[in-house]
């Protein structure tokens, strides 16, 4: 996967405007984006269109990406950190087909990164734009279901209910029992849902050199964090915010500073923990980092045994 992707897997589609959306729709989204950047953390309503995929598959993120994308951009798409899962592959193919843009899996090479529920491990740079797919933009939704009320609460900066919720977590569980979509306060004003990224990623939101845009298609909301915006994960003085930590390093690349996915490897409860960011993991392995289950010794053994046992002169091909 870490090889450069072929520039074009399918011929660019004809009959569509560049990047699928019509210019009228792009202007509407662009106006919403400019106001979102001017009011960091505030949810700006926009007239989300039907996209050629169901809600829940990233229609908000796709519309934001389509509105900002230019022919010179290099696009990376990740789904839970991985470049090679269905959602990421489909969205990447969609923009290859409708915008004919260059694509990559390498974080450092991308100018626009559309993401579902992760922020890449490699620190982002100035000039990069991160587009989040957001299912539920309203952080107060499960505390107050009425949109009319939550909008007033945001207008008044009345976030007492959110603090009560976090306090009740501490009273019941001894800690704030929220591991993803952990609410943040932006520049001391708006409380914002950072989309369902693990709270491990929350510190990366703050003072990032990259521009961060959030699109919720079904909910028809756009919000943004300009570069170098102060973003604070909500907490209490005696119960400070703590990002998730892992006890073991990545089983493939040995990284101790990345977010890990649990992978069940058989039906007897054996499991391994590997980097959720596939590009990060592959780059580390390419640099020679090895985890406990990287499998090199296995490949060597099989190759060596095959070498000894084969006598038909056929070339030896190590397992991938």
């Amino acid at each position: 996967m870490n090889a450069p992707l072929s520039p074009q897997t399918a011929p660019a589609a004809t009959g569509y405007n560049f990047a699928y959306l019509d210019e009228q729709t792009k202007r509407m989204i662009r106006r919403a984006l400019l106001k979102a950047v001017a009011i960091p953390g505030h949810q700006v309503p926009f007239a989300a269109r039907d996209m050629p995929m169901p809600y829940g598959w990233g229609t908000g993120g796709i519309q934001v990406t389509a509105a900002i994308l230019g022919s010179g951009d290099v696009l990376k798409v990740i789904d839970q950190g991985a470049d090679d899962t269905t959602n990421a592959v489909s969205i990447r193919a969609f923009f290859q087909k409708t915008a004919n843009v260059a694509v990559t899996t390498r974080t450092a090479e991308a100018t626009v990164i559309q993401t579902r529920h992760r922020i890449p491990e490699k620190p982002l740079k100035a000039g990069q734009t991160l587009v989040f797919q957001v299912p539920i933009p309203e952080p107060l939704r499960f505390l107050e279901p009425r949109e009319t009320e939550t909008r007033v609460m945001h207008a008044l900066a009345d976030y007492g209910l959110m603090h009560v919720k976090l306090y009740e977590d501490i009273a019941k569980h001894g800690h704030i029992a929220k591991t993803y979509a952990y609410p943040v306060e932006v520049e001391g004003r708006y409380v914002m849902d950072p989309s369902p990224i693990p709270k491990f990623d929350n510190p990366k939101l703050s003072m990032s050199p990259a521009l961060q845009l959030f699109g919720a298609g079904r909910e028809k909301r756009i919000y943004a964090l300009p570069p170098f915006t102060r973003v604070k994960s909500l907490d209490f003085e005696d119960h400070p915010f703590e990002p998730t930590r892992f006890e073991a390093p990545c089983a493939l690349c040995g990284a101790t500073d990345s977010y890990l996915d649990e992978v069940v490897t058989d039906d007897r409860g054996t499991r391994m923990f590997v980097c959720s960011d596939t590009d990060h993991c592959e780059e580390r392995r390419a640099d020679g980092h090895r985890g406990l289950l990287a499998g090199d010794d296995l490949v060597d053994t099989i190759t060596r045994e095959a070498d000894v046992e084969r006598d038909d002169g056929a070339p030896i091909v190590p397992l991938p």
């Binding site: 560049f18 210019e23 400019l34 900002i68 022919s71 570069p227």
Partner: peptide
């Protein structure tokens, strides 16, 4: 070239307001 020139101009405005 309205599509690409407007996109380039929009990104300039977006970046100008973001930074």
């Amino acid at each position: 070239d309205p599509v690409h020139e407007a996109q380039t101009c929009f990104r300039a405005v977006l970046d100008a307001l973001a930074e």
